[in-house]
């Protein structure tokens, strides 16, 4: 055990010293990712072909995603694109994420922010859904004192719930407010006192199924959007993406120039939030 500890510690120190070039590699050594087999993937829906041969965008993105899954994990780079011109502020993605990830009261991985500018009658309003940016240079990872937050080989910033001590340093460090503290509320607290049936089900957490209850993680931990790893790995799109009422959310492999996200990203009207901080987000916005 001490020997292990030392090894790990020194490797991290080393990783820290040679950062940033070697940073991601250094971390993966510690946290293996799950492997995928093609035959376990969710079938792609069969929708009539478009008149110009085009596909339903969900089909197209699922194909992109499943193609990416055939590559080794370190060659994938998941990214999201949200077309703010199309977002109607319906909050479908927000609640779809809440139910998908069985989030407790007060936690939303993808709130839809509303910003209003101007004075009557020259007023404008914009809706900005805000998942985790899955930063390439994530400030949340650096501050975590126990290595509970780490960046996977595919670029998703993950949290090891069993390591996390709940110090909330990462919450203060995330410039996007993308991290939440799970203080331990249940919907039953606000409605009848008893846990609601869907709160008793295990929820998918970074490849594990966990039942959320007092005294066990993720209560007391930091939590955040994880790009629905559990869905991606089944060959499905993240819940917010499939549910997006305005068809404003796109998802796929940024390393794949053929993917729909990559294609859309080539447009000039792409931006990212707080670009100046150098966090290098993998969530892009079309404006």
């Amino acid at each position: 055990m001490p020997q292990n500890l030392l090894n790990k510690f020194s490797s991290d120190v080393f990783a820290g010293l040679v950062a940033p070039a070697l940073k991601p590699g250094g971390l993966e050594a510690v946290h293996p990712a799950f492997s995928i087999q093609g035959d376990e993937l969710t079938p792609i829906p069969d929708i009539p072909e478009g008149i110009n041969g085009e596909k339903h965008y969900i089909q197209r993105m699922m194909e992109d995603l499943q193609r990416a899954l055939q590559k080794p994990i370190e060659q994938r780079k998941w990214g999201m694109l949200i077309d703010l011109r199309k977002c109607t502020g319906c909050n479908g993605c927000n609640i779809a994420c809440v139910t998908e990830n069985k989030l407790p009261p007060g936690i939303s991985y993808r709130p839809v922010m509303t910003e209003t500018h101007g004075t009557f009658p020259n007023v404008s309003r914009r809706f900005t859904p805000r998942p985790c940016m899955q930063c390439e240079e994530p400030p949340c990872v650096d501050v975590c004192p126990v290595n509970a937050t780490w960046k996977r080989a595919d670029g998703i910033v993950a949290i090891d719930y069993d390591k996390c001590i709940g110090c909330r340093y990462c919450i203060t460090a995330c410039p996007y407010a993308a991290r939440s503290f799970d203080a331990g509320y249940f919907y039953g607290d606000f409605n009848g006192g008893e846990r609601q049936p869907y709160e008793l089900l295990p929820s998918p957490e970074y490849g594990e199924e966990r039942v959320r209850e007092e005294g066990s993680s993720p209560i007391g931990n930091a939590r955040k959007c994880n790009f629905c790893i559990h869905r991606i790995e089944r060959g499905e799109l993240p819940a917010c993406t499939v549910s997006c009422f305005g068809h404003a959310t796109y998802f796929g492999d940024l390393n794949d120039p053929q993917s729909l996200v990559s294609e859309l990203l080539s447009q000039p009207n792409v931006m990212r939030l707080k670009e100046e901080l150098g966090t290098n987000p993998k969530v892009y916005y079309l404006v």
Binding site: P45, N91, G92, T99, V242
Partner: peptide
Amino acid sequence: SAIYGNVYGPMNTNGVCGKGASGLQ
């Protein structure tokens, strides 16, 4: 435990709105 849009239906296809996703409650 979760509500998604029905991608085969042409009206909303894959989408659900906030109300629709909230049906569980």
